[in-house]
Nucleic acid binder design. Structure first.
Lengths: 350, 350
DNA sequence: GTGAAAGCGCTAACAT
DNA sequence: ATGTTAGCGCTTTCAC
């Protein structure tokens, strides 16, 4: 460093007090203990010298880093930026800093990053990476690290979480398809080891029953990950089978974009020959042609809520486990056809 | 914590050596000093006890955190994920960790985050947030913190950087427009206080001259930030003026998307009534209708290169300042019309 | 080659 | 109300 950084001792010496007095004077928690006069003098010289407390020393001493680790499965997926923003805002308001890490959906990488964060003594973690059965969640529990899951949760429910109401979201999507006159509705399911994929799949089946349709297992395609190439591949596979369908409910927007790709290759168009819905309402899906009908999740609020829950747990380590479910809404655009026509059941066949 | 973490002392005691011996035995740098026999014994007991060195103590002692701060102006912009990926990969290979922070294009926020990172003793910084004149860059220089700028650079050139060859990229875009028969070409310029906006603007004018056209100042619209709403607003403004144009070269993809929005409102279509090019080739622009012709920047390589340069500087603080320029390529899609009429150049370099 | 001792910058008993 | 002292877990002189 250019100039050796000014330390608490420097301030104390300059102010003519003992370092611990200076420490107490500068710490809002302990300022009461100190004569107002001295406290002010210390504060002034600290400012004059440009004193910046060394968080490392603080951390080594107190074991509190004021850092929250945030594990993101795929930073390339546009749903995460708003979530992150929500987390950062809520955390920042409480004097905490979010440290982001991208696990790339790779369990090995995830493990390395987690250990790294534990090593760096994060005060807590927000994980958007959870699988339904997740050893890393166990690891955090074992270390007694405050943890909140976001977007995805674990099957056991033994840790706090804030997720979307995926079943309800599916009901919205399926009900809309039915309202548009579709009876043969396919589903592009996400990975079933993720709560999102799992719950949306279950929600799809349940919702079909509710609108009086039966979910044909041969019209359910299982995607091994939530991305466009999988969406395209599985859509094409469904299409190649014998079963006809006029609508497809995708478990997320990226899968729906994959459907667009496939349709384009086939010379077809979403919202004309085949109705398509996504899930998430991520940025840019309103810019596609046709704009995508999808289920909007309040991502920002999700992030903020998770952060607040974590902060609560930081204050009280024995705070009860909470499961918060956020209510999504349907955003109707053009990928499900212009106007719901009740009469004509199967529109287009090809 | 559940079980008190095992410390170096524990290992030393268990192995029957002094803590400093254990330290030396475990540190690859100093292992030579130690009898191979003892070194092995220490290593074995360390493993047996599940010893994990405490990076905080290491940091407090050595002032080396093995952390690199990465400042991103807007994590919502899809160009950054690939850059981040490149940075993380190159850094990870060298045992460093990237810590990301989103500044939201807000100078105040940027300053807070920078001070925070300096406080946490990052070993170096990669900034994607630089303005052409940037006090925060000065701040890093003053602290002698190793720094590499990425994507954007500073006018003075006093710090290492890796950026795209924006002038060349503009030549590609303009030359393509000219080849397609356009003569009245508009430009949506980005903020001129950013090197990207500035250089692309200059590149546009230069490129126009090179193809024998004159850049009409009234066909240059200045956007105050790189996002869709600005693109839409400024496009509409240009359109409202008297001057006609048949093509618009946008300074980045988000601005081009704004043009799409505007065209849509006017009942027009990119690639038919008005040719549009973007800049960046960010994810999803190939999914727009029509797919966007744009200038592809090797974002991943950009990130990796910046990380490597920073690592080099970490090894040798007196490494010279380097300016690396990456060569972009034109990706022709449908937003510039189906077929260039003048010549039979092949389309689609993707 | 290994042990002893100091110290990174801070906070928190404990003493006065 | 303030000063004294010890120590967080590690590395690194300096002795031997």
């Amino acid at each position: 460093m250019a100039t050796r950084r000014v330390t608490l001792r420097d301030v104390a010496r300059r102010a003519g007090v003992h370092p611990s007095t200076a420490s107490r004077a500068l710490n809002p928690q302990t300022r009461e203990m100190i004569t107002e006069d001295i406290a002010r003098r210390v504060a002034r010289t600290a400012r004059a010298l440009g004193y910046q407390p060394n968080p490392i020393a603080y951390l080594l001493k107190t074991n509190r880093s004021r850092i929250i680790g945030v594990l993101i499965p795929d930073i390339t997926n546009p749903v995460f930026p708003p979530i992150i923003r929500g987390i950062e805002d809520a955390l920042g308001a409480a004097g905490y800093t979010a440290v982001l890490a991208n696990t790339d959906n790779d369990e090995q990488r995830e493990r390395v990053i987690l250990e790294n964060m534990i090593g760096r003594r994060v005060d807590g973690l927000i994980m958007a990476t959870a699988r339904r059965r997740d050893p890393l969640v166990q690891r955090c529990l074992a270390e007694e690290i405050p943890l909140v899951l976001i977007n995805r949760t674990v099957a056991s429910g033994e840790v706090s979480s804030v997720v979307n109401d995926d079943e309800f979201g599916m009901e919205l999507a399926v009900a809309h398809m039915a309202r548009c006159g579709h009876a043969r509705i396919a589903h592009l399911a996400g990975p079933l080891d993720l709560s999102t994929g799992f719950t949306r799949h279950r929600g799809f089946i349940k919702a079909m029953k509710e609108v009086g349709l039966k979910a044909d297992p041969r019209l359910i395609g299982l995607c091994s990950s939530f991305n466009e190439t999988e969406g395209r591949r599985v859509f094409l596979g469904l299409r190649a089978g014998n079963r006809r369908f006029t609508a497809v409910v995708a478990a997320n927007d990226l899968l729906a974009v994959g459907c667009y790709d496939a349709l384009h290759e086939l010379g077809l168009r979403a919202g004309r020959e085949v109705a398509v819905t996504g899930f998430n309402d991520m940025p840019f899906v309103d810019k596609l042609r046709p704009p995508l009908t999808t289920v909007r999740i309040p991502h920002y609020q999700m992030g903020a809520q998770a952060a607040r829950m974590l902060l609560a747990r930081l204050r009280d380590p024995h705070a009860p486990i909470e499961h918060v479910t956020l209510r999504p809404e349907l955003v109707v655009r053009d990928s499900t056809g212009r106007a719901p026509r009740t009469s004509s059941r199967s529109r287009g066949s090809a």
